[in-house]
Design a protein around this nucleic acid. Structure first.
Lengths: 155, 155
DNA sequence: GTGACTAACTACTAAAATGATAGTATCTCG
DNA sequence: CGAGATACTATCATTTTAGTAGTTAGTCAC
C-alpha cells in the first residue's frame, strides 16, 4: 500500500499503517480484556486460524505482544501484552468512546473499578491540559529538512 | 467478518469495526489536515480511485463526511468533515502519540498553534481526571440482559 | 465551434488478502 | 492404547484490493 512521500514522517500515518487494521485492533482489545491463548482469541473473534497466526506474529514482531511459555509439560505458549501493547489501551478506549457518542445502538459502558463510576474517555494535551480538538494544531517537522513545513489541523 | 456474539455490545468493537481500516483512517487524517477533494486524497495517499470512491461513500454514509457542492459551474462536489468526523481527531492524535513513543524513526511533532508548544496527546477519564490505563476498568452491560456481565481490563 | 484541460469518477483485469475447513504435531490422562 | 487438549499448518474458494485506462461533463482559449 504505502506509496512514497505520503507524509513520510507523520506519526499518525505511521501508527495507523502499523496497527490500523481491524483484526489487529480487535486482537489487542481481547488481550486487554485478559485473553492470552490462541484458541481463546480464535473463538472469541471467530477469526480464521491462518489470519490469527499472521496477526499474532505481526504483533509479536512489532513488540506489542510477547510469547510466554505457560506450561512446560506439555510445552505451551501464549501471548501477553508488552508495555508497548498496554500503551495502546487509550487508543482503544477513545475508539469506544467515539462509537458511544456517534453510533446508534445499545452499548456497554466503561466503569472505573476503583470508584464504580462510569468513565468518559477523552483526549487531552498533557502539556496544556486542553481538550484535543479545541485548538488548532500544526504537524511540524523540525530539525530535519527545513523545506518540509507541516500541515495544519483546524478544529 | 463480524461473527455472532463477538462482544456484541462493546463500543470498542463497534468503533473498530466501523472505522478500523487503514485507508479509512488515513482518509480521515487527510480530511483533518484540510483535504476535501477526490483528486487531492488520491494523490496524497496514492490510493486507487476505486478504493477511494468506496471509502468516501462509506464515510459519507456513516456520517463522518458530507458532500458539498463547491462549484456550480462546472458542478463539482467535495467532502468535508461532519461533527462526527471531527470528533475522530483525538483518536488519530492518540494513534500518532503511540507511534511517537513506540516506533523507531524520526517523527514530526504536534504543535499547539495557540501556544507554540509541542503537544503531548494522552487519554484521560473526563470524570475522574485519571490517566487512562492507570486504573482497572470494567466493561459493563447494565440495563440490558443481566446475564451479560462485563469483561475486565486490568492495567 | 474546436481542441486542450480539469476533475470526479467508472470499467476492467491481475494480484493479494481473507475465509472456511480439514488436518498435523505433541503431549497428558485415564 | 485411545481420547482429548492445544497450537498451529495446508489447501483452496471467495473476496478485496491494486493498477491502469477510459468516461463524462463542463470551462476556457482561440
Amino acid at each position: 500500500m504505502s506509496k512514497n512521500g505520503v507524509a513520510q514522517h507523520c506519526p499518525i500515518v505511521r501508527g495507523v499503517s502499523t496497527l490500523g487494521d481491524t483484526w489487529t485492533m480487535l486482537i489487542l482489545r481481547e488481550a486487554h480484556v485478559g485473553v492470552t491463548r490462541f484458541d481463546q482469541f480464535r473463538k472469541n473473534l471467530g477469526i480464521a486460524p491462518t489470519m490469527l497466526t499472521k496477526r499474532l506474529a505481526a504483533l509479536t514482531d512489532g513488540g506489542l505482544l510477547e510469547k510466554r511459555l505457560y506450561s512446560e509439560r506439555p510445552p505451551r505458549e501464549d501471548y501477553v501484552l508488552t508495555p508497548a501493547g498496554q500503551d495502546f489501551l487509550p487508543v482503544l478506549l477513545l475508539f469506544g468512546a467515539w462509537a458511544q457518542r456517534n453510533c446508534d445502538g445499545q452499548f456497554a459502558r466503561f466503569i472505573d473499578e476503583t470508584t464504580g463510576q462510569e468513565i468518559e474517555p477523552v483526549g487531552v494535551d498533557a502539556v496544556s491540559g486542553a481538550r484535543l480538538g479545541s485548538r488548532p494544531i500544526k504537524v511540524s517537522m523540525e530539525g530535519a529538512k527545513p523545506a518540509t513545513e507541516g500541515s495544519e489541523i483546524h478544529p
